[in-house]
Nucleic acid binder design. Sequence first.
DNA 1: GCTACGTTTACGCCGCGTCACGGTGG
DNA 2: ACCACCGTGACGCGGCGTAAACGTAG
Lengths: 136, 136
Amino acid sequence: MGDESADAATHQIGEVAELVGLSLRTIRHYEEVGLVPPSARSAGGFRLYTDADIERLRLVKHMKPLDFALDEMRDLLRIRDLLGSADIEDREALVERLGMYAAVAEERCVQLRERLANAEAFAVLLRGEAATRGRS
Amino acid sequence: MGDESADAATHQIGEVAELVGLSLRTIRHYEEVGLVPPSARSAGGFRLYTDADIERLRLVKHMKPLDFALDEMRDLLRIRDLLGSADIEDREALVERLGMYAAVAEERCVQLRERLANAEAFAVLLRGEAATRGRS
DNA sequence: GCTACGTTTACGCCGCGTCACGGTGG
DNA sequence: ACCACCGTGACGCGGCGTAAACGTAG
């Protein structure tokens, strides 16, 4: 096999930023607030991200349109992690919390739809004025 | 007629806030940045808003979903004002600027739609996990 | 003179962008 | 020794929320 093991492939922040489409600052910030900490650091202090870390970042990026706060996302990701890792006692409780987040997400979607409707109405209005006022 | 004139009916900030659905702080902030200054002040310093002012606030509130910055809105409102007040020389130029804002608005709508799609996908995913993990 | 409403001033928050200055890695 | 990449502060910003301390209207 490789030089040590196959899954140890890590990436440093610049590469990750390009892959995921987030700025370096943002990725660092996500560590600051404990949202997506890198799995390791190099001897010299470079952040080293595993593929799993990258997936996490992608997840976060997909959550952003829902306007979740960073600590909400942190919480949500923690729940997913817990549910993933073996069987726990509080499975029920965790699943319920996950359901609550799902509900919030759906609520946000509704809000987004309202917002979009509002926005489109306004865009039409503006376009109309731009045309009318030109000929009035 | 009334006690002085019919169109002088003014409202103080609390009433306005309730009518329009914005917080006092927000309305004051809109004055701070020159977006919607009250047409008058009482002797003691109370902000007095005319119906026209209130309309302006409503307009701003409808623009918010488009994520315009406050100074962009200020600019946009100024253009509308200028176009409304009699005939000016630069009518052409102003109308063009208005058109640019319309274009930006339409662009924002597109972004909002993308965002909504993303959000809905994620909401479905979340709901799915909340169900699956419960039975896995 | 009571009460509801208003005023200004100022600091806090979130999610980063943007320096500045110095260390790492290949 | 070079040079691209990375590190840690630290400050700034937009759009308000929020609290403090005090004035106005009726």
